Simulated assay, not measured.
Amino acid sequence: MAVYKIVEIGDEILKEKAKAVPKITPNIIKLLDNMAQTLYSAKGVGLAAPQVGVPKRVIVIDAGEGLIELINPEILSSSGKDTDTEACLSIPGLIGDVTRATSIKVRYFDRQGKEQLAKVKGFPARVFQHEIDHLEGILFIDRASNVRKLEQKEK
């Protein structure tokens, strides 16, 4: 496994819409493995493939409940609203307040190509939405209010 370099704001790939994965190949499995390694190395909670320079609809998330791998994720429904502070591995040093749904239903494929449905609430729902935004070329600062520098104590 390898740790990828995380692409930072200013790189055009972060503003592009990622392409669907038509077939799960050994390269996609390797991408998932390396993205997970990169996520943990960076001490993040979510990572989308465009953040490592790969314009594919692939995400890895560990919001405290173990690793979840999502291929071609799609939000089917959402409810509730909450505003909270977000940050991003691709935008070091900045945070902002983002309003997102508090509960979502997501369809995606796992590494075996099996369709999965997940109902996600609270912080994990926020992470899912943040990462799915990356696949659409949307950064949290595009949705945020009160964008500010991260204070040392908040890190």
Rank of each mutant, 00 (worst) to 15 (best):
I13K: 06
I13N: 04
I13W: 08
I13R: 06
I13T: 04
I13Q: 04
I13G: 00
L14S: 10
L14W: 08
L14Y: 09
K15P: 00
K15G: 02
K15D: 07
K15E: 07
K15W: 11
K15A: 00
E16M: 12
E16V: 06
E16S: 08
E16C: 07
K17T: 14
K17C: 08
K17W: 04
K17I: 15
K17P: 00
A18W: 02
A18H: 01
A18M: 05
A18F: 02
A18E: 00
A18T: 00
K19G: 01
K19Y: 00
A20P: 09
A20F: 13
A20Q: 08
V21Y: 07
V21R: 10
V21D: 01
V21K: 10
V21I: 09
V21G: 12
V21W: 04
P22S: 07
P22T: 14
P22I: 00
P22A: 02
P22E: 03
P22M: 00
I24W: 10
I24P: 08
T25P: 03
T25K: 10
T25W: 06
T25Q: 05
T25G: 03
T25M: 05
T25N: 02
T25I: 10
P26C: 07
P26V: 12
P26E: 02
P26M: 08
P26Y: 03
N27P: 00
N27I: 00
N27H: 12
I29D: 07
I29M: 08
I29E: 13
K30N: 14
K30E: 15
L31T: 04
L31I: 05
L31Y: 09
L31C: 04
L32N: 05
L32V: 03
L32S: 06
L32E: 07
L32A: 11
D33W: 05
D33T: 07
N34H: 09
N34R: 13
N34D: 15
N34F: 05
M35D: 06
A36R: 09
A36T: 13
A36D: 02
Q37E: 15
Q37S: 14
T38K: 03
T38L: 01
T38P: 05
T38A: 03
T38R: 03
T38G: 01
T38W: 03
L39H: 12
L39V: 02
L39G: 06
L39K: 10
L39C: 06
L39A: 06
Y40G: 04
Y40T: 05
Y40E: 05
Y40A: 03
S41V: 01
S41K: 15
S41G: 08
S41Y: 13
S41A: 14
A42G: 08
A42F: 04
A42H: 10
K43A: 11
K43R: 11
K43C: 03
K43Y: 12
K43S: 12
G44A: 10
G44C: 11
G44R: 10
G44P: 14
G44I: 01
G44Q: 14
G44N: 13
G44H: 12
V45K: 14
V45Q: 07
V45R: 14
G46D: 09
L47G: 15
A48W: 06
A48V: 05
A48E: 00
A48S: 14
A48L: 07
A48K: 13
A49L: 02
A49Q: 00
A49R: 08
P50W: 13
P50Y: 12
P50R: 15
P50M: 08
Q51W: 14
Q51P: 10
Q51V: 06
Q51S: 15
